[in-house]
Amino acid sequence: MRFFQSIQAELTKLKYLPILSLVCFALFSVLGIVLVAHYMDVNNIAVLDKNPWLKVWNAGVGMFSVFIANPFVIMLISAAVFIEFQSNTWKYLYTTPLSRTHLFYSKLAAIIFFIAATLITLSIGLIMCGYALNFIFPEIEFSYHTPPVFELLKSFTHTIISLLGVIGIHYFLSHRFKGFLIPSSFGIIAFIVAIIIGAMNKPLALYYPYAYPIVSQEHNMFRTDAVGIIDYGWINNVELFSIICFFFFIVLANVLEVRKQIN
């Protein structure tokens, strides 16, 4: 109960931040591009015996995972932690009757909740996008197929898991550096490198957490067949590395935070 209240407090802090405008921009960009791309390439959507929703899902999830997920997570985490440095509130947070570990994990939980909420909003947006296309092009017959919502949520779950490594690294960096600029610029440069590594289609991507959201699922954007993805059923090796990376950086950041002297 106490942890839930702390998460609520952390989410209240995110109200009215410029990051929310960025989220809206990201969501509308993805939806807008998916809509326009399908509008322009309408003949390829309508394939006999194939559910047209799957194509919309693939475009939406791919667009988000490859181009939006990394910068979004980097900016969100940098902003969420930076609020405390900017307002100089660590000294008050650490004089509340809650342990530093409690506060550390409640902020992390709020960030992950925020990312999940964004993806759910994007899912709803993609469903609406499909119905909008159906309204414009009834011949595609979206209405004759049920939107495979489970498939969409499964894809986004994989996206979140593959993002965990970046979340861990950035949560660590944002606590270590007082400013917004250093962790966010580091992240953006790392993201650009990730795009290059993703496009190279080589196993190097396995050792680079920023590339995990790009290569963990096939989005028909890069050829990722030579990366060396091993599927274990419900999870693959890239997602497993992402989880390991997340725990390593989160535990390290928490240990350092608990020991930190607040000047």
Partner: peptide, 10 residues
């Protein structure tokens, strides 16, 4: 402690 620390966007 010293100057008050507030969330200025709220």
């Amino acid at each position: 402690i010293e100057n008050p620390s507030l969330y200025y966007h709220l």
